[in-house]
Design a protein around this nucleic acid. Structure first.
Lengths: 202, 202
DNA sequence: GTCTATACTTCGATAGAC
DNA sequence: GTCTATCGAAGTATAGAC
């Protein structure tokens, strides 16, 4: 099987992406990127004139890592099942979210160029959430007085905030609880009169 | 009116606390603390031998800033009203949470001593949430098949995650939506047969 | 407790040969 | 495109007088 030669440029981007996830932007130095990637000084500054340029490439590289997961929300099939599947997807609560993490770094959040890829990623995930929530309302799995736009933000926040709680306690429990609690609420928010096509409730 | 003389020590702690909120731990330098506080070099290292010592004092100082707000949850009166009041409390979504922010700083999260005050603060807020949620269940404002422990984490996560979304978009909207959506869900999760003592629903 | 001076390291970037 | 050498600034702390 053919493996494309990994060029220095891509190696730098991948390494920067890893380090930014682990340590954030401010606290990741060009030196560490060089050392972990094995790419030399001259080479690095040839491809990326500044640390910020490299960070931008790394941030953009991360978006596609986040979206395939969210696109599960767009799959065909039972809306509520997709919501549950996405929420319960295996995650590592103690590592946090590659994308969400960046919002806490002042050097990222105060730089519109660096923040843009982060904003775009969340906007797209939000759109997927809104679609599946609308479908759930249409399928009478959720009360129709619930606003999908709002709920989408609520559920995204549960995940992002769950990471914060888990890291604070150094325990995945709070993350898992937060997600499970959100699912409980969604189930409790089914319409009073279930669709006659539904399988009967337990 | 008497104003206590602000000693260097307290001034350093307050300044460090501010800077850590604004810029995080890794990205805040002793130099900045000196400059903003006006305290001299020798004085600073007299009170705090290392940056970490100063950070620890600042983190501990921040807890009491967070808890009075959460203690609203413990007030007497209608549980659901207290929940709503706390969730809708005026906040600045774009500034984020003083305490939650720290979980994203590797130098804090990998240092058990620095992380401890953060964990403690969240543990206490969680306890307040659990109490008020139990009361809400007892008052038949929430279905009794909802688990207060879980829900407490869910609602804390909505707030913490709301900040992340708001900062990413540089717009308080997503935070406000996340919170409003959570309230919608809580209201939708009222028991099917309301308490006969309840005022009649609109 | 506070001051000034100094030390040593890392950061982020540039220079210029190959 | 890659290499080695170097730079000025900032970070973090120590020394030692007052």
């Amino acid at each position: 099987m053919y493996t494309a030669p990994v060029d220095s440029r891509q190696l730098l981007i991948d390494t920067m992406s890893e380090l930014m996830w682990e340590r954030g932007y401010a606290d990741t130095s060009p030196r560490e990127v060089r050392q972990r990637s094995g790419v030399g000084q001259g080479s690095m500054y040839h491809h990326f004139p500044t640390k910020r340029d490299l960070a931008l490439a790394a941030l953009e590289r991360n978006i596609p890592d986040l979206l395939p997961a969210a696109s599960e929300l767009d799959d065909p099939g039972d809306p509520m099942a997709r919501i549950e599947a996405y929420l319960m997807r295996p995650r590592d609560p103690l590592k946090g979210c590659k994308v969400g993490r960046m919002t806490q770094d002042p050097q990222v959040r105060e730089d519109p160029v660096l923040l843009a890829p982060v904003a775009r990623a969340f906007t797209q995930v939000h759109a997927s959430w809104v679609r599946v929530l609308r479908e759930a309302v249409a399928a009478r799995q959720l009360r129709d007085d619930l606003d999908p736009e709002r709920l989408a933000h609520t559920l995204m926040a549960v995940l992002q905030g769950g990471y914060v709680l888990a890291i604070a306690q150094q325990d995945p429990g709070p993350f898992n609880n937060a997600v499970a609690g959100a699912l409980d609420l969604l189930r409790a928010a089914a319409p009073a009169a279930p669709d006659h096509k539904d399988k009967k409730r337990n």
